[in-house]
Design a protein around this nucleic acid. Structure first.
Length: 451
RNA sequence: GGAGACGUGGUGUAGCGGUUAGCAUGCGGCCCUGUCAAGGCCGAGGUCGCGGGUUCAAAUCCCGUCGUUUCCGCCA
């Protein structure tokens, strides 16, 4: 048998910047982007950023920078760095790379449109969004979207753990009529179709299959609204489940879901929260709740002088200002970042909403305010076939477009309900962002279709 | 859909009738052995969104237009 030559020592193993601390004294390889280069004359600092963090390499030998200097390469050049991990007190994070050997993978020769090597991104919202494909590389920007990923993962985990099943319902749908929200019309092989404004009908139907379901997916709203907290495509964290007593059963589940999401942030996303200077809310074991009618009265008592019209109390909805006031009140009165507003008037809710048996003008539904902004809508739905027929008639809606939806109720559905959390709103309120677009990866709004 | 505000080098801004259009950051050069939003000196980079008007003179005042943004409405 032939002698197999002993293999050359393997090149240093590629590790992440965030794992380098476990390799002190070893020679490692990093792959990433040139985040920053600081030349102080006799000593130079190379900051490499990879998908997880940054790590500093240091050299007193100008020749180590040759791959960059010879071609006048700029930041964001993609590089490999090999070197020895050293524990050095004055280095950021206490570790740095010594005797760095650099190779260039993809050279960059142009200055960036928006500087991302500083601690803060100094850009207006439009340029931030125009150049999102590179600005999202900034550690603070990507921390937002790492938290976003964390929220989705935690949402899935807590519901899966309770026996819920994940579904993906179609986003191309035939019927346009669910609530008042406008829908985007599309051409489906010559037939009209629409982008789904919510998974509402499908998640209800799937309660008949799995009892408890959840979905993480985009929803589309063709509303021409122009505010800091609305966009036309957003991620909805939906849940729906059967055999509930009423909307309070749903609210209890929602409370646990949110508690788990924020607990996960606290356990696994400390670095991101710190970078973004975010303060986690504590989720009370019992989130305070107030009935819509009482909330209206309360706002009137507290702020009647500031109300614009005399008929504010009669409005069947809460204005953004009223929601902010209620948020302040919840903070002051209950020391809570959250407040449930229950029992919205039936006429403001979609046809599948279950009425309050004791007060039929009001619904078994709720909104959850988080720091004064609506974060979640939910409630109990109708579950009897006859009730649906009556509700559609009341709403002056035709039966035909809803036939397959109604089929589920014809053949037995339990009392059920659910909720939908706006993912970007969750992040916006958690981080105190002034605009929802700051917590949306690539926002779609009235005048933004790219990137 | 309604109301308001803002468009000045790549980016963020000051200037608001006569300025060589200022500052910061980025970029280029030089100096600097522990930076970490590095620092110091020098330099390049702007027909002040566009069109019209007022004026001896417009980045600055007026009108229009395009773009952006904030609040409200609708919606979540």
């Amino acid at each position: 048998m032939q002698n197999i030559p002993k293999p050359e020592p393997l090149t240093p193993v590629v590790i992440r910047t965030t794992e380098a601390h476990a390799h002190i004294g070893e020679t490692i390889r990093l792959q990433g982007w040139l985040h920053n280069l600081r030349r102080l004359g006799g000593v130079s600092f190379i900051v490499l950023r990879d998908g997880w963090g940054t790590l500093q390499a240091v050299t007193e030998n100008e020749a180590d920078l040759a791959p960059l200097l010879e071609e006048e390469l700029s930041t964001e050049t993609v590089i490999t760095l090999e070197g020895t991990v050293a524990s050095v007190p004055q280095a950021p994070g206490g570790i740095e790379l010594h005797q760095p050997r650099m190779t260039v993978i993809t050279p960059v020769r142009e200055p960036l449109p928006v500087v991302i090597s500083k601690r803060e991104v100094n850009a207006s919202l439009p340029s931030l969004l125009d150049h999102a494909v590179v600005v999202n590389r900034h550690p603070a920007r990507r921390a937002v979207f790492r938290l976003s990923a964390g929220a989705m993962a935690a949402f899935r985990a807590v519901l899966a753990n309770r026996g819920f099943t994940e579904i993906q319902s179609p986003k191309i749908v035939a019927s346009a009529t669910e609530s008042g929200a406008n829908v985007f019309k599309i051409d489906y092989f010559g037939r009209p179709a629409y982008l789904a404004q919510s998974p509402q009908f499908y998640k209800q139907v799937m309660v008949g299959v799995f009892q408890g379901v959840y979905e993480v997916a985009p929803v589309f709203r063709a509303e021409p609204h122009d505010t800091t907290r609305h966009i036309n495509e957003y991620v909805s964290l939906d849940a729906e489940f059967g055999f509930i007593e009423n909307h309070f059963t749903v609210m209890a589940l929602l409370r646990d879901v949110l508690a788990h999401i924020f607990a996960t942030f606290g356990e696994q996303y400390r670095a991101e929260l710190e970078l973004l200077n975010a303060k986690l809310p504590s989720v009370p074991a019992q989130i305070p709740h107030i009935h819509f009618a009482e909330a209206k009265e309360l706002v009137f008592q507290l702020h009647s002088k500031e109300l614009k019209g005399a008929d504010e109390r009669a409005e069947p909805d809460l204005s953004p200002q009223e929601e902010r006031w209620l948020g302040e009140w919840a903070q002051k009165e209950h020391n809570s970042d959250f407040l449930f507003v229950t029992g919205y008037p039936m006429r403001k809710r979609p046809f599948y909403t279950h009425a309050d048996p004791a007060r039929p003008a009001y619904s078994n539904s709720f909104d959850l305010l988080f720091r004064g902004t609506e974060l979640v809508t939910g409630g109990q739905r109708l579950h009897r076939y006859a009730d649906y027929l009556a509700a559609l008639e009341q709403a002056k809606l035709p039966i035909e477009p809803f036939e397959s939806y109604l089929e589920a109720f014809r053949y037995g559905m339990p009392p059920h309900g659910g909720f939908a959390i706006g993912l970007e709103r969750l992040l916006m309120q958690l981080l105190g962002a002034p605009n929802l677009r700051m917590t949306t990866l690539f926002p779609r709004d009235l005048n933004r279709l790219t990137p």
